[in-house]
Computed example of a mutant assay.
Amino acid sequence: MLQTRFTEAFGVPHPIVQGGMQWVGTAPLVAAVANAGALGMLTALTQPTPEALTAEIARTRELTDQPFGVNLTIMPIVRDVNYDEYLRVIAEAGITIVETAGRNPAPHMPFFHEHGIKVIHKCTSVRHALKAEAVGVDAVSIDGFECAGHPGEDDVPGLVLIPAATRRLSIPVIASGGIADAQGLVAALALGADGVNMGTRFLCTVEAPVHDAVKQQIVAASELDTELLFRPLRNTSRVSSNAVSREAVEILTAGGAFEDVVHLVNGERGRTVYATGDPEAGVWSVGMAQGLIDDVPTVAALVERMVTEATAQIARLGSMTASAVPA
């Protein structure tokens, strides 16, 4: 067992988090992660209404009695979102861990504190992490450039970003982006992190509510098979490289506006990918970590393998400091 400030503060056995993933962070996956001793996150905005989130929390509790959290992304999206209602549902359901992303969570911190909710805020830069610490979050998840989804606009990879954050923050730091195995976990801990967050790796597990053809696509792909979408709009998103994403990148690079690609990047098309198994049906998020993935294990097998191998690797590294035996 690997004990860190994160495991102690959030009450989970292993320093591994399954971050929020649109369309994917639902009860079957989250419960499997929780049952494996890691921290699973329901994605609130995958649920179309606050009432649907209430039902999904209940469904998760039918599958696990272990701690899990809710991811709430606070930013402009296509549909109108009543964040106050989602927050009410989270509190009334007795959820004690929330992962926030997008905008500064400061306006909501009094609510979280009032209801005894611990907050992990997802950041892509040290300056944003410092702001999150200043407004009272309990931990930050820091995304390196390798990550799926939004890596920010600074393009700093994890090998630099993680220690840059941990040397300046006093709260636990969760390393995110490019992590898919025990080596990534050990590296993150060595860089000063208190745990790791994984999206792409959990996407490629038996319990992930995604068509198996998509999982096999991830297994077959390399770290080179992603595209950086929306770069000219300074809202970069790392997605799978396919005909749709490449066309959208080409249009935007040539000076096109968001309106010129909205028919390509519509979120419902991405949802269709997961449902039908056609990786060319739309734009869907995946990280460079896919180049490290070569199987589709159960969540329990993945977490056990990571922790067991990480423990062995830490012991091996420790043995390297042993004094040489005199001749």
Rank of each mutant, 00 (worst) to 15 (best):
I293M: 04
V30S: 08
L228E: 13
L63Q: 09
V296R: 00
A213D: 07
L317S: 12
Q3E: 15
V156Y: 03
Q217Y: 10
S240C: 10
L292N: 12
A300V: 03
D80A: 15
A9K: 15
F111D: 01
A58T: 02
H150N: 15
E227L: 06
R231A: 14
L130K: 13
L189S: 13
Q47F: 07
I77E: 10
V186K: 04
Q66W: 02
D138L: 00
G144P: 03
E259P: 00
V273F: 05
A221F: 02
N197R: 09
G149Y: 07
A132T: 11
P105F: 06
P13L: 02
M320S: 14
A220L: 05
A91M: 12
I179S: 09
D212W: 03
G267F: 03
A44V: 04
G69N: 02
D138H: 02
L302E: 08
V24N: 08
A327E: 09
G178S: 10
R201P: 06
T96N: 02
V219I: 13
M1Y: 12
L252I: 12
S237A: 15
L191D: 14
A187G: 05
V210K: 11
V78E: 14
V210W: 09
V33P: 01
I174C: 08
G195M: 13
T96H: 11
E309V: 06
S125V: 08
V214Q: 10
G178P: 02
E259K: 05
R79D: 03
G116L: 09
P279K: 07
P157W: 06
N104Q: 10
D260V: 08
S240M: 14
A101S: 15
L29E: 06
L252G: 10
F6Q: 00
M109E: 11
G158Q: 08
F10K: 03
D181T: 11
M306D: 14
V296N: 01
D295V: 05
H115F: 14
R167P: 00
